[in-house]
């Protein structure tokens, strides 16, 4: 059994990389998969907070790389699931503490025992980004429906292609169907028109995200949560598993919008 290593990246900061990482990891774990989430944002770690595991950190990624502990000692088990682990970033160091080949080594160690390794990339295009994509089998690019985020996503996709990691798959996060309908926000079709890569999912703006991030309870975790973002993340996990979940993507422009509106109301 060999785990698939998925890196979540965006270029621009604040578009929801950490939220997507935490929720995808949780949603995959809910499907009974063995999942390790790695925070590669050394010096600015967040994933532990969003997953609600901050107070259980003893060792971190830099400790593993520098040989102060074994990999298994840095893996924090999330007790809410059968097999979900977090490998936190160090908060006191910087990106230079880890090299791309260190990341490949860590992931290779995880591969035999996991189904998925999900890596949260830092913002930017420098060393931290290179660390995060070095071990990736698949890259997920997160963007928001706004011009600056799409511009940065385009840059990132170019860099991913240069590293020969494929063009990646796209998640459009924080879309507000009502604003799109009024023409005040880029539509899904507008974003895809520029980026021209596969759409993996669309996550609507949802207050539940902020509330759950503050509580350290990714929205995807609650199977009964009717929040639309929660459902969106669970659908994306299904798609990663190869299941053909009927979604918002690939439909023509007007179709997407009307279906999205129905979907937000209907769930």
């Amino acid at each position: 059994m060999h785990a698939k290593v998925i890196t979540v990246t965006s270029g621009k900061g604040g578009v929801g990389k950490t939220t997507v990482t935490a929720n995808l990891a949780a949603a995959l774990a809910m499907l009974g998969k063995r999942v390790a989430a790695i925070d590669s944002d050394i010096g600015l770690r967040n994933l532990d907070v969003v997953m609600g595991l901050e107070n259980r950190i003893v060792y971190d990624l830099v400790d593993v790389v520098e040989g102060r502990c074994r990999l298994s000692q840095a893996m924090i088990r999330d007790k809410r699931f059968a097999e979900l682990y977090l490998i936190p970033a160090a908060q006191t160091r910087d990106k230079m503490a880890v090299s791309p080949s260190d990341m490949v080594l860590v992931c290779d160690q995880l591969r035999p025992d996991m189904d998925y390794v999900v890596i949260d990339s830092p913002a930017g295009i420098e060393r931290g980004f290179r660390n995060a994509i070095a071990p990736a089998d698949q890259v997920i690019v997160v963007t928001n429906p706004e011009v600056s985020a799409v511009r940065d996503a385009d840059r990132i996709i170019g860099l991913i292609e240069a590293e020969e990691k494929g063009p990646g798959q796209l998640i459009i996060n924080r879309i507000k169907p009502s604003m799109v309908a009024r023409g005040d926000m880029l539509s899904i079709a507008d974003v895809l028109d520029i980026l021209a890569i596969d759409l993996l999912g669309v996550v609507p703006e949802d207050e539940a995200i902020l509330i759950s991030s503050n509580r350290g309870l990714p929205v995807a975790m609650s199977a009964t949560n009717s929040a639309s973002a929660s459902q969106a993340f669970r659908n994306i996990a299904q798609r990663l598993e190869g299941n053909d979940v009927p979604i918002l993507d690939l439909a023509p422009q007007s179709g997407i919008l009307s279906r999205l509106r129905n979907w937000v109301r209907g769930e």
Binding site: R151, D154, R155, G158, L159, I194, A196
Partner: peptide, 25 residues
């Protein structure tokens, strides 16, 4: 033979033909 994405610069001393888009940036 590819789309030129944001942040890339193609410089050449002769003519240039791009089979693909040239994106903003």
């Amino acid at each position: 033979l590819e789309t030129i994405r944001s942040g890339r610069s193609v410089q050449h001393e002769g003519h240039v033909t791009i089979l693909g888009d040239v994106n903003p940036g």
